[in-house]
Simulated assay, not measured.
Amino acid sequence: MKILAIESSCDEFSISILEDGKILSNVISSQIEQHVDFGGVVPELAARLHLENLSWVIKVALESTSIKIEEIDYVAYTEKPGLIGSLIIGKLVAETISQYIQKPLMPLHHIEGHIYGALIDNEFAYPVLAMVVSGGHTQIEVVRSANDFEVIGSTLDDAIGECYDKVARVMGLGYPGGPKIDKLAKEGNHFAFNLPIPKNDESYDFSYSGLKTAIINIIHNLKQKGEQVPIADIAASFQYAATKIIEKKLEKAIKQYNPRTLTVAGGVSANREVRRIILELGEKFNIDNTFVPKMEYCTDNGAMIAKLAYEKIKSNN
């Protein structure tokens, strides 16, 4: 079984080729440098750049394998959620290829793809407890099969990645903020500032707007007093508060749902502290099947969509 998969939900345009469960190619056209000056992703620019780059992405994805496009059995693409203009580009490319080779089209869910990106080079034992952390989402999902996803908690306002970017902007670190704060946090004291643990209750929901506001107020107050802003300490204190609530809510979910697999997915799954929390919780609760995705599968990529498509086809047969 050969699958061509397209991911175009935001500022990456990616195509992956998968054969019998194995990723043969995963080509990504990233636009981070083009969006840096704007402090975030500009939707219209992202869609325009997808149009400019899609030809070479398709060409390289196919040429890096021994597979011809006529040999593809399924064409998968990200249908939702994401930036509407970017999604439309991916859909049009997928529909064009599907019609050209007369093979089935599979519209798939972006977040489900992220979760199955963690499955690449690993195996799921169901049920799976997945912590989804990205620029647009923060949620906990219980996955019972490739066709059975239950969201048990999600963010009520800012997603964790969005919060990282907004805090980094106030700190003068620029975009993207997550990796920069994560790196700085290694050098700081996370007890330097007593920040509120966001949405610290018995629910599985998240809220990061209050934590973002607390950091902004600290920085503004220091500047008004003419005091030096200890960037590393602020980064460490922020990261501790932002991830501590993930640890607490995941621990509660583990006790309630008794998962056989524990994992994390989404762009923020590259975060050092988030990865540590997942692995330590797995060890604490003796969940042998605990793993984090490879760094190359953390951000948006076609391989995660290809893997999701493959697992759905398998479960339906």
Score class of each variant (00 low, 15 high):
1 M>F: 01
7 E>W: 12
8 S>F: 11
14 S>Q: 11
15 I>K: 12
29 S>A: 15
32 I>N: 06
34 Q>E: 15
35 H>S: 08
38 F>Q: 05
43 P>E: 13
47 A>Y: 10
47 A>M: 10
54 L>T: 02
57 V>D: 09
62 L>D: 09
64 S>H: 13
64 S>G: 03
65 T>Q: 13
66 S>D: 15
68 K>F: 10
69 I>S: 07
72 I>W: 10
74 Y>G: 05
74 Y>Q: 08
75 V>L: 13
75 V>Y: 06
76 A>C: 14
78 T>S: 14
78 T>L: 11
85 G>L: 08
85 G>P: 07
85 G>S: 13
87 L>R: 08
90 G>L: 12
91 K>V: 00
94 A>E: 09
101 I>M: 06
114 H>N: 02
115 I>E: 03
127 P>Y: 14
135 G>T: 09
138 T>W: 13
138 T>I: 05
139 Q>F: 06
145 S>T: 01
145 S>V: 01
147 N>A: 10
147 N>V: 04
147 N>L: 15
149 F>C: 09
151 V>Y: 00
154 S>T: 09
158 D>T: 03
159 A>I: 08
159 A>V: 06
160 I>D: 11
163 C>R: 03
163 C>H: 03
166 K>F: 03
167 V>H: 03
175 Y>D: 01
176 P>S: 04
179 P>V: 05
180 K>R: 12
187 E>P: 00
193 F>L: 00
193 F>K: 00
198 P>A: 06
200 N>D: 14
206 F>N: 01
207 S>A: 12
212 K>S: 01
214 A>N: 02
214 A>R: 05
216 I>Q: 11
218 I>P: 00
219 I>E: 02
221 N>H: 10
224 Q>K: 15
224 Q>H: 14
226 G>T: 01
226 G>V: 04
231 I>H: 07
231 I>P: 00
231 I>M: 14
234 I>D: 04
235 A>K: 01
237 S>A: 10
242 A>Q: 04
248 K>I: 14
249 K>L: 13
249 K>F: 09
249 K>G: 06
252 K>W: 09
261 T>K: 07
263 T>D: 09
264 V>L: 11
265 A>V: 05
277 I>G: 07
278 I>A: 03
279 L>A: 11
285 F>A: 10
286 N>H: 14
287 I>C: 08
287 I>E: 12
287 I>W: 12
288 D>E: 15
291 F>I: 06
295 M>F: 14
296 E>H: 09
301 N>L: 05
303 A>L: 04
303 A>E: 05
312 K>S: 01
314 K>F: 00
